[in-house]
Nucleic acid binder design. Structure first.
Lengths: 202, 202
DNA sequence: TGTACATCAGTGAACGCGCGTTCACTGATGTAC
DNA sequence: TGTACATCAGTGAACGCGCGTTCACTGATGTAC
C-alpha cells in the first residue's frame, strides 16, 4: 500500500510518543522493539525504516519526555492567579494522579537514576532542561535572585524526592503523607525548627 | 579442594556484598552473573551452588543495601554533639563523596524508580526501612510528634531529590549548588518566602 | 480514460549474540581403617 | 603413620531463550504514456 504524504511521519511520531510513555513506566531495559511496534499497530520488521536502532528511539523518546516538563510548569504558573505561581507548580506536581501515572508524568522521578548513569549527551540535554526548570520556579519566588535560585533548587529537589518516595511507598496512607509533607515543605507552610534548641531524647 | 568450615559462607557473603555495590551502580539489568562471579574470583558455573537464581541474589543484595541506611543515620546522630543530630544526618548525606560513590551510598537515589516498579515483597521491605528512617530523623527534631514526622518526611524527600539531581547534573558547579541548596533547605537555614506577597515578574 | 510500471511503508521469517542456567567433571582435604 | 575413599566448592563447556537486527518480499497507489 502507499499512503498519504505524511503518513510515515505520523507513524514515526506515534511510535516515539508511545515509547516515551513506556520508557517512563519501565525504563530503557524494560521495553522491547517488537512490543512497541505492536502497540503502534505494526510489526517489528518495520522499525528500522523509522529508526537507526533501539537506542536511537530511546534517545528521542527521552528527549520528548524531557521537553514536556519545563513547558508544563511555565504554563501552570501563567494560568495561576497573580502571586500563586509557585502554589500552582507544586500543587500541580505533587498529586496522587501524577504519582499513579508514571508514564505521562515527569521524567525525573521515573528515570532519575538512569539519567545519572546515562551518556554525556543525555546528561547535557537534561542539564539544559533542569536550568529551565530552576528558572521557571525561581521566577515565582519573591526573593533576591541568588536566594530565589537556591530556594527554587531546593523546591525542585523536594518535589522529585517526594514523588519518588510516594511511588516507592505504594498508594496507602504513608504515600499520601509523603505527598502532603512535600507540598507543605516546598511551599514553606510548616514550622521549620533547627534542632539546636533541644533535640528530643532518644 | 576442600575448605575451612565456613569458607562457603564467606564466599557467599562476598558475592552478595559486591552485588549490592554493582546493583546500586548499574541497576538490576546492568549486572551479569558471570561478571559478578569473576569479581569474586570465581567462575560463573559455581553461582548456583550459592543462589537459586539471579533474581534471588538481587533480592539479597537489595535487602543488604537497604539494611545499611537507617542504621548509618542513627549512628551519625548518636555520634553528634547533643542537639546536632539532624545536622549530622543531613550533612553526612549530602556530600560530594556520597554523590560520586553510588555503589556504597544510599539505595534510594540509586534505585528509586526501580523500587517503585518492583514486586510487592521488595516494596514492603522498603516501606519498613522508610518508616525507620522517618523515625530516626523525627527523633532529632524538636517539634510535637506529628509535626516532627511531617518535617522528617520532607527532609528525607529533600535529601533524596537533591542527591538524584546532583548526580544527574554531573559534578560541576550546578551539582555542587544542588547539594548546597538541599543541605540548607533540609536544615531550615534559609528564608522561605511564600509567593504571596509578590512574585517576581516574568 | 485506461494500462504498465515504479515506489515504498510495512511484513514476517530468519539470524546471531548475550546471558541465565544446567551438568558432568575435578581435585584438594578430612575421615575411616 | 600411611593408604583408600567420600565429600563438595568450584570449573567450564554447552544449552536455550529473548531480543535486537536484517532482508527478501508484498501490494496498494501515484505517475507516465
Amino acid at each position: 500500500m502507499r499512503y498519504s504524504k505524511d503518513h510515515k511521519a505520523e507513524t514515526r511520531e506515534r511510535i516515539v510518543r508511545n515509547a516515551s510513555v513506556r520508557l517512563r513506566e519501565r525504563g530503557a531495559e524494560g521495553i522491547g522493539v517488537a512490543d512497541l511496534m505492536k502497540e503502534a499497530g505494526l510489526t517489528h520488521g518495520g522499525f528500522y525504516a523509522h529508526f537507526e536502532s533501539k537506542d536511537a528511539l530511546i534517545d528521542e523518546a527521552f528527549a520528548f519526555a524531557l521537553s514536556q516538563i519545563a513547558a508544563r510548569w511555565r504554563k501552570r504558573a501563567e494560568n495561576a492567579p497573580p502571586g500563586e505561581g509557585l502554589e500552582a507548580i507544586v500543587n500541580g506536581y505533587l498529586t496522587e494522579k501524577h504519582r499513579d501515572d508514571v508514564g505521562h508524568g515527569c521524567v525525573l522521578p521515573a528515570l532519575g537514576a538512569e539519567i545519572a548513569r546515562g551518556d554525556a549527551k543525555s546528561r547535557r540535554q537534561f542539564v539544559g532542561v533542569l536550568d529551565d526548570m530552576i528558572e521557571a520556579v525561581a521566577a515565582q519566588i519573591a526573593l533576591p535572585p541568588k536566594a530565589a535560585r537556591r530556594r527554587a533548587i531546593a523546591i525542585i529537589s523536594t518535589m522529585m524526592g517526594s514523588m519518588i518516595l510516594a511511588r516507592a511507598a505504594g498508594s496507602g496512607d504513608l504515600s499520601d503523607d509523603i505527598l502532603d509533607a512535600g507540598r507543605r515543605a516546598a511551599l514553606g507552610a510548616d514550622e521549620v525548627t533547627s534542632s539546636r534548641g533541644g533535640a528530643k531524647a532518644r
